[in-house]
Every structure is written in C-alpha cells, then in structure tokens.
Amino acid sequence: MKKEKKSSRPKRKWVGGVLVGLLSVVVCLTAAFGWIWFSNRNFEETFYTLYTSKIDEPVRAVLLADLHQAEFGTDNSELITRIAALEPDVILIAGDMITSGSEDLDYAVGLCERLMAIAPVYFGLGNNENETVYGSDLNADFFLENAGLLGDSPENFEPLVKDNSLLTGLRDAGVVIVQNESVITTVNGNKIEIGGISTNLSSFWPNSGQFVYRFAESDSDHFKILISHRPDPVMEYIAGYRLDLVVSGHTHGGIVRIPGKGGLLSTEGGFFPEYDAGLFESGPMTMIVSRGLGGHGVIPRIFNSPELVVIDLN
C-alpha cells in the first residue's frame, strides 16, 4: 500500500502543474482579450483648437472617420448622444463609414440621417465606399482601364459609378458628398468652403490634383477645409497649398500603438506610418488625422482607443 502511494505523488504533482499552467494561460488571455474588447468599444474624444483670422465667430466641427460599421451602443446611440452634447456646427466624415462587401448600406444612411438632425454633414468618400460605389479603390490602373468612360474630364467620376444606392441614400438623407468638388457654406456667419477627394498616391494626379489646385488657389478670404480620406497624397503632393485645414483618417492610428512611439502598422502595408494620427502642420496648412472609430481585419486595435475628433475654429 505504501509503495502505491509513493508512486502516485509525482503524477499528481505533474497534473497539478499542468492545471495551474493552463489556468494561468486562460486568465492571461481572458484579461488581454477582455481589455482589448472593452477598449475597442469605448471611444475617446480628442479636442483640437485652431486659431485663424478667417473665422469671426467660433465654429465647432466634429470629425468621424473609419467607422467601418462599428456600433457604440444600440444603433450607435452613445455616439449620437455624445455628438449631440458636443453641439457641433458642422459634421465632417472622412470616409470608410462602411466596409466594402457589406450589403448593409442602411447603416451609413441611417447614421447620417441622425447626424443630419444635429448638424449639416459633409461626406468625403473612403476607399471602402469607393469599392462599393465604383467597384474599385480608384487607383491608377482602374482609371487607365476606364479612361474611355472618363473622356476629357478625369476628375468627374460619375460615369464610373456601378452601384449608386449608397450615394443616392446619403444624398436623400441631406448629406453633402464632396468628391472632387467643393461647396461654400455659411456657418455662424463665417464663410467656409468644404471640399473632398478620395484618390490615392497613384491616382491623385491627374484624377484629383487639378481640383485641389483650383480649390486652394481660389479666393482665400474664407476658411477652406479639405476632406481627404488618405493623409499621404496630401502631404506628398499638396503640402504647401493654401488650404486651411485638411481632415483625414484611413490609418486607424497605426492599429497597434506603441506608447511614446506611435502607430505600428500601416493600412497600406508596412510599419510605422508617418501620418498615423494627430495634428501635422505644413506651411499655411494644418492636417488633422483621426485614429478612426472602428476597424476591420484580424488585428485588433491595441493601445489605440477609437477616437472622435472635435475641432474648434476660433
């Protein structure tokens, strides 16, 4: 009997060790995933204040980018409530409100309808909307293939539209879509011009550049905002232009943020994107890049809470 007891002890110890090891792994994974889940479902607010002589009465703009059909509360009730509380004068959307391939276009239209009840909405398309509307991310190859459709106006993408339902839904909701065009509006007595582009580095010239040039060089007495889903073409090609404010997204803040270092991953591939998030200045131009509110793909946002950007113009 005694012999049997002695031989079973090491076995029990080994089993106990494995159990504790497994328990440790489970606890660690639960904590890590729980934290990632929690931090991805709560958004932070980042406030920027810009001072300009072109604005007489203060204007507040709220910038939403890269929602990718994310939900903050049922039907985005938390997001809507918070935006309403912030009392914006204008709402800017820097693209990727939906994820391409999704059939649920009502998400974007429904959300925009509720945003329109708060303030006028100006929508710059992102690569995901482009893929839904034009069937492609408007890169140079796509334009070459469809050069015949464009004819003499390389900046008018209407002939390339394959599925008009999203654009129609948004326009019906009262949203102003700015695709290679700008509109002049009066906000709190201030004349503000809002334009938008959604091309990328390969197709900026000749499919958006002329518009941006005209936009920047026209009457400079009023404040000009350009919505460009991607920040890279702006800093690559038009960094010195006389645009007062450029708002962007696309980078998702680098998806994984290394504290003190910035974003780790680029949505275009590669590491440490230069314009990952925050405020960048170039000559007379200020660019604000949002970390975005949602995400897609397998890599979750880490140390990178969803971000709602509030811009005060004084």
Partner: peptide, 17 residues
C-alpha cells in the same frame, strides 16, 4: 510553489489594469 506563482501572476494582471 505553483499556486503562489499563480497568485503573483494574478497580481501582475491586476497591476496592469
């Protein structure tokens, strides 16, 4: 000391938050 070390691991996780 497996349970003791497990307790320390829990303390580490708790500290991280």
């Amino acid at each position: 000391k497996k349970w003791l070390n497990f307790l320390i691991l829990l303390a580490l996780i708790f500290n991280c938050f």
